[in-house]
C-alpha cells in the first residue's frame, strides 16, 4: 500500500500556544483513519493544516509525493483533497441539489452533467429531505450529509470529515458510518475526527490519538483501545470494561 499523505514534524504555534506539536504520521491510500483525542488536543488544527486553511509553523505535508505544505486553499479541491466543516456551512440561499452542484462544477462548465451528477450524489449519501428544499432549513443529519455530498461532488481522493457525526443519534451515526464505508469502497481515503469512540473504533482501519498537540498513540483500533496511555489520557478505565 502506498501513502497518500505523509506528515513530517508538523508543528503549529499560535503566539505562545503550541496547538500541534511535532506530528509525524502516514495515511495509507484507501483507508479510513480516525483522529481522536480530548478537546483542545489539536485535531481540528491538524485538519486545517492538511486542508491548508492555515499553514504549519514548521514541518512538511506531502500528498501523493508532492509537497502541499503551502498550497493555497482554493487549489486543494483540484488536487483532490476535500473537507467538511465541524459547524456545517451550507449555502443557505440554495437548494440541496444546487449546493451539491457548486462542488460539481469543479473543472467543468456543463450544467446538465453537473445537475445529473448532483442528483446521483444526493441518492448516494442517502439524504431524506426534499432535494429542492432550501439548505438552511433541513435537519442536522441532512446538513451533515450535505457537507459530505458537496465535498464528494469535487471528486476527491482524500476526504477530511470534521466531526461529521456530532449531534446525530445512534441510528443516524450508523447511516453516516455506512456512507463513509461506501465512499471508501469507491477508492477514496478518509480521515475522520470523531468523539464517539465506539463508532470511530468500529469503522477505522487506523486510529491516531492526539493529546495536548502531540501524537500520543497510533495503531489499529484494538491496539489503541488497549493502550494504557490512551486509556489514561482520554478513553478512561470504563472503556476497557465496556469493550471487554
Amino acid at each position: 500500500m502506498t501513502n497518500i499523505l505523509e506528515l513530517r514534524n508538523v508543528t503549529k504555534q499560535f503566539g505562545g500556544l503550541v496547538a500541534v506539536n511535532d506530528v509525524t504520521t502516514d495515511i495509507e491510500e484507501g483507508s479510513i483513519v480516525g483522529l481522536i483525542g480530548p478537546n483542545g488536543a489539536g485535531k481540528t488544527t491538524l485538519f486545517n493544516m492538511i486542508a491548508n486553511y492555515f499553514h504549519p509553523t514548521s514541518g512538511t505535508i506531502h500528498y501523493k509525493g508532492n509537497d502541499i505544505t503551502n498550497v493555497k486553499v482554493d487549489k486543494m479541491a483540484k488536487l483532490g483533497i476535500a473537507r467538511t466543516f465541524q459547524v456545517t456551512r451550507p449555502f443557505g440561499d440554495m437548494s440541496i441539489i444546487d449546493n451539491i452542484m457548486v462542488g460539481g462544477y469543479l473543472g467543468t462548465n456543463n450544467t446538465k452533467d453537473v445537475r445529473k451528477k448532483a442528483e446521483e450524489i444526493y441518492e448516494y449519501v442517502a439524504m431524506t429531505c426534499n432535494p429542492l428544499q432550501v439548505a438552511s432549513e433541513v435537519t442536522t443529519v441532512d446538513r451533515k450529509k450535505l457537507e459530505v455530498g458537496r465535498a464528494l461532488a469535487t471528486a476527491p481522493d482524500l476526504l477530511l470529515l470534521d466531526e461529521v457525526m456530532a449531534g446525530c443519534n445512534p441510528q443516524e451515526k450508523l447511516e453516516l458510518v455506512e456512507c463513509a464505508r461506501k465512499i471508501r469502497e469507491s477508492g477514496v481515503t478518509i480521515i475522520i475526527i470523531e468523539h464517539d469512540i465506539k463508532t470511530i473504533m468500529s469503522c477505522s482501519d487506523k486510529i491516531i490519538m492526539l493529546d495536548r498537540g502531540s501524537k500520543l498513540v497510533e495503531g489499529l483500533p484494538q491496539e489503541v483501545g488497549n493502550d494504557p496511555r490512551a486509556i489514561s489520557a482520554y478513553l478512561g478505565e470504563d472503556y476497557v470494561h465496556v469493550e471487554g
Binding site: F85, R89, F91, T111
Partner: peptide, 26 residues
Amino acid sequence: DRSKLGYYFVAIRSDADAAESLGIKL
C-alpha cells in the same frame, strides 16, 4: 443565474470559506 458563474457567485455570497474549500477562486 443558471450557469456555473451564477452558482459560484451565490456560493461566494453564502459562505466564502466553504466556497473556497470547493475550489472556487474568490
